[in-house]
């Protein structure tokens, strides 16, 4: 796959260019004439590239991570579903209004065991993007997800949700059909589902739209995924009335997997292949598969009442506050 480099990847692209140059036949001839060890030179550049990549991708800024999370060639839910699960059978519709293609879901096998997998799905090309509303779910998407989760509960199958959305849809149709109610209902129902739930944020964790399928016993996050209360552009617009200061806002919001893990809001950061999941989707899928299996195996051992109590307490404890002893007087 042709990878279009980000700005911050330019030094790598330059080394790639040198490697292409060095492997040209006339270069080889030239080197032979001059008695230069071309293989050693190529190896040296390769090593330099690896060193540079390791450094670069270990130190991405929150804004660079945002770009990675939104990268159009990043693996999407259906890519992971194909690689990680067997026999996925997609189910449609919320039984109320329609079928929202921004959310996909259905039964599948994970290491031969039946699970319900639900994911938010962006589109690859323009047509598919429009069909899937760029991964922004309407109320129907959240209601389809809940319908499938309830189905899983009824037949005692664990639930896996994959989060990748810029935000929930907020237009007229979404408002008319109760987008707030749909998200709120999922937030109320998911804590009570009597089966294990594992969530993985694979790309963009866009505020309420992400959370609407993300109340899991375990919440995992890919290394270069983001999870935020508001998109950096929106935050910058409110703070500084300037959407162009999104990079700064991304930093202020601390929306990276590393921050979320450090804050105790996600359980595990899944390490991506060097340079990002899109450079090696197979390896990223293998990582996800291993983590999902590991956590599900653990959760299956927990009796249901305890599982639900743990799930409640997990979210119950999220937040930072302090108790003041002095009272404040208004001016």
């Amino acid at each position: 796959m042709q990878i279009n480099p980000f700005d911050f990847e330019r030094p790598i692209a330059e080394l790639d260019q040198i490697l292409v140059e060095l492997s040209r036949p006339e270069k080889r001839r030239e080197a032979e004439e001059q008695g230069i060890d071309l293989e050693a030179e190529i190896q040296r550049v390769e090593q330099e590239k690896q060193r540079l990549m390791r450094h670069l991708f270990a130190h991405l800024s929150p804004w660079e991570k945002t770009q990675m999370a939104r990268y159009p060639q990043r693996p999407y839910s259906l890519d992971y579903i194909r690689q990680v699960f067997d026999d996925f059978m997609e189910m449609s519709g919320d039984r109320l209004f329609g079928n929202d293609e921004a959310v996909v879901g259905g039964p599948a096998l994970l290491e031969k065991k039946p699970v319900m997998v639900i994911g938010q799905q962006k589109g690859r090309d323009l047509k598919e993007r429009q069909r899937r509303n760029f991964g922004s779910a309407y109320p129907e998407g959240f209601r389809k997800a809940l319908r499938l989760m309830k189905m899983a509960e009824k037949f005692n199958r664990p639930i896996i949700t994959l989060v990748d959305t810029p935000a929930a849809e907020a237009g007229l149709g979404a408002e008319e059909r109760g987008i707030s109610e749909a998200i709120a209902r999922n937030l109320r129902e998911m804590p009570m589902l009597a089966v294990p739930i594992v969530t993985a944020v694979i790309g963009e964790g866009g505020s309420g739209g992400a959370l609407g399928i993300a109340v899991g016993d375990r919440v995992l996050m890919f290394e270069h995924a983001t999870y935020s209360v508001i998109p950096p552009e929106g935050c910058a617009a409110i703070l500084w009335r300037d959407r162009n200061r999104a990079a700064e806002a991304a930093g202020a919001l601390k929306l990276t997997a590393q921050h979320a893990h450090c804050f105790g809001l996600v359980d595990e950061v899944l390490i991506e292949p060097l340079g990002g999941a899109h450079r090696d989707p197979m390896a990223a899928s293998a990582t996800l598969k291993k983590a999902l299996t590991h956590h599900l195996d653990q959760l299956r051992e927990i009796p249901v009442p305890e599982l639900l109590e743990q799930r409640y307490q997990k979210f119950r404890q999220m937040g930072r506050w302090t108790e003041r002893t002095e009272t404040v007087e208004p001016e």
């Binding site: 505020s207 309420g208 959370l211 935020s228 935050c235 804050f263």
Partner: peptide, 23 residues
Amino acid sequence: GARMHEGLFSLMQMAKTSAAVAR
């Protein structure tokens, strides 16, 4: 809405309060 100054902590209050309603 959620207070952006507390980032993901604020978002999680949506889940936390809704779970309390479930109880």
